[in-house]
Structures are given as C-alpha cells and as structure tokens.
C-alpha cells in the first residue's frame, strides 16, 4: 500500500461533523481546552499527539462516553448532545476503543451484537436469536476476510490481533456514517495492520464513511489519512493536510518542543504557510 492509493478527497465534500470549542476537565486535571475539529464526508482524519494530549478524551466525548464541559457537536448539520454511547451509535457514530470494549466471558457472536441483539418470539417471550446472530457474525467476518477458529469461542481465548479484528468488524457492521478508531493497529502484526488499513480504505471509498483515527505510527498516517490534527496539552496545535506535508516534516514538528507556540513556530519555520 502506498500514498498513491488515496484518491483525492473531493473539494466539495460536505462537512459531516463539527466539534467546536470542546473543553473537558476531570477534577483538577484539564484534559481538553477549546478543541475544535472538523470532519468531511469520506475524509480520514488522523489525531496524533503524545500520551495525555487529550486524544482519547476527545473521542470519548464524540462517542457519548464522556460529556463535554463546554462546546458543541454538530453532526449532519444539526446540533447533537450525547448522554450515553447509545445516543452516539443512534446517530451513526461507531467507536472502537483502545481497550476494544470486548467482553471476555462472552462468545464472539454475542460480542458482535452486544447492545443490538437479534430477538425471536418464543411462547410470548422475547428471547435471544442466538442462531441468527451466530450465522450473521460468521457471514460478516467471512466477507471481511477475518478468520477466527469459531464464532462460538469466548473472546478471552482469542489472540490480541483477533480481538482487534472483531472489534473493528463490530463497529462497521451497522454501516456507520462516522467511524472512530482509537489505536486500531496497536496490537496488530504487519499483515493484520495492512488488512485493517485496507478495511478503512474500502469504507471511505465505497461507502463514503468518515473516519477519525488515533494512531502513533506516522508511517501509517500517510498511508490512509487525508488530514492530521496534532493535539498537544489539550489543544489542537497543528491542522495540516497530508498532501501538504511529509512524514519527516511531521516528525520534526512533533519533536520540536513543548507548548503550542513552539510547535506553531517550528511548523512555520519548516514550511511557511502550513499552519
């Protein structure tokens, strides 16, 4: 896979998500300060930044797990408020968390459908349709090319890479409009990483899904992402298109120092007009 694989994002792609002036504190710890991000249809946005920069907090606000102290979220043109992860899912925002949110004691197919189970009526009772969920899970994993020993095995018996694949598969099952992936490649080997990146590419090309990707490997950013937002100490320090910048430049900017001003200054010095 290389950079040529990315078709240019059309200039008139509509904005599907706008998070404006989002702030969030946990007690005395300030996690986010006035963070604003924009996402267009079919765009793959990379969120980068050091540990504790606020990336995970930002996406947990987007997924409804946390509620922002201030700021607004506009999805598909209307302002939304997510009181819980269910609300965000109902709006077509699916999230794969860093911890994968898989339940080790449940089978793969139960995990696939957790929170949106299929039911059947039996003697007037609303029972789980385990057969349908098992079949659907198997079918879906097959079409995505994900091989696991059995959809019946409990998740705690799977390898890290297999779990990651299950979590990604679950998030795209419901055809989301926005897909948020928190370090989706962290536990994956080279082939598995390529496979997940391939899935992301497919989603954006065929279904015009917008993707927010938290990723640490800058190499992978340039493979699939259209734009980079660099978070530092709870603020967006850099917002650049991958077409306008290179991997070396990005790494130099990131290494350049502490503090938003220093990063902006470094970015301006390396390539004037970037920020």
């Amino acid at each position: 896979m290389n950079t040529q694989a990315i078709p240019p994002l059309s200039k008139d792609a509509p904005t599907v998500l706008e998070m404006t002036n989002i702030s969030k504190s946990f007690g005395a710890v300030t996690a986010l300060v006035d963070v604003s991000i924009k996402l267009r249809q079919g765009e793959v946005l990379a969120l980068v930044g050091d540990n504790g920069a606020g990336k995970s907090t930002l996406i947990k606000i987007l997924s409804g797990f946390h509620q922002p102290d201030t700021g607004t979220i506009v999805s598909q043109g209307k302002e939304v408020r997510f009181a819980s992860p269910r609300d965000a899912r109902a709006q077509g925002i699916e999230t794969v968390y860093q911890d994968l949110a898989l339940v080790g004691d449940l089978s793969v197919f139960h995990n696939m459908f957790l929170g949106r189970e299929y039911h059947k009526r039996f003697l007037g009772l609303n029972l789980l349709d385990n057969r349908k969920m098992r079949e659907q899970a198997q079918l879906y994993l097959d079409t995505l090319g994900i091989t696991i020993p059995s959809v019946n095995s409990t998740v705690d018996l799977l390898s890290g890479g297999q779990r990651q694949c299950i979590a990604v598969a679950r998030s795209i099952y419901s055809s989301p409009k926005i897909l948020v992936l928190d370090e989706p490649l962290a536990a994956l080997g080279v082939r598995e990483s390529a496979h997940v990146l391939g899935l992301i590419q497919n989603l954006r090309q065929q279904r015009q899904v917008s993707v927010i990707l938290i990723v640490h490997n800058y190499n992978q950013i340039f493979e699939v992402c259209d734009r980079i937002n660099f978070l530092h100490a709870g603020e967006v320090a850099l917002d650049a298109s991958t077409a306008d910048t290179s991997e070396e430049e990005l790494i130099r900017i990131v290494k350049s120092g502490l503090g938003t001003r220093a990063i902006e200054a470094a970015a301006a010095e390396i390539r004037p007009g970037l920020v």
Binding site: F65, T95, A101, L128
Partner: peptide, 25 residues
Amino acid sequence: SRTTFGLHTIATGSNIIGAREIGVR
C-alpha cells in the same frame, strides 16, 4: 442464557468499562 438481560448481566460483571463503552447500561 437466553435473554438480553442475561447477556448484559454477564457483560457488566466481565468487563464493566467495555460493556459501558458499547452501550450496556
């Protein structure tokens, strides 16, 4: 073993944060 209630009960005890993240109350 056969209802959503049971599934979510197990999910709650097995991985409470993960279950919450995926929308289990």
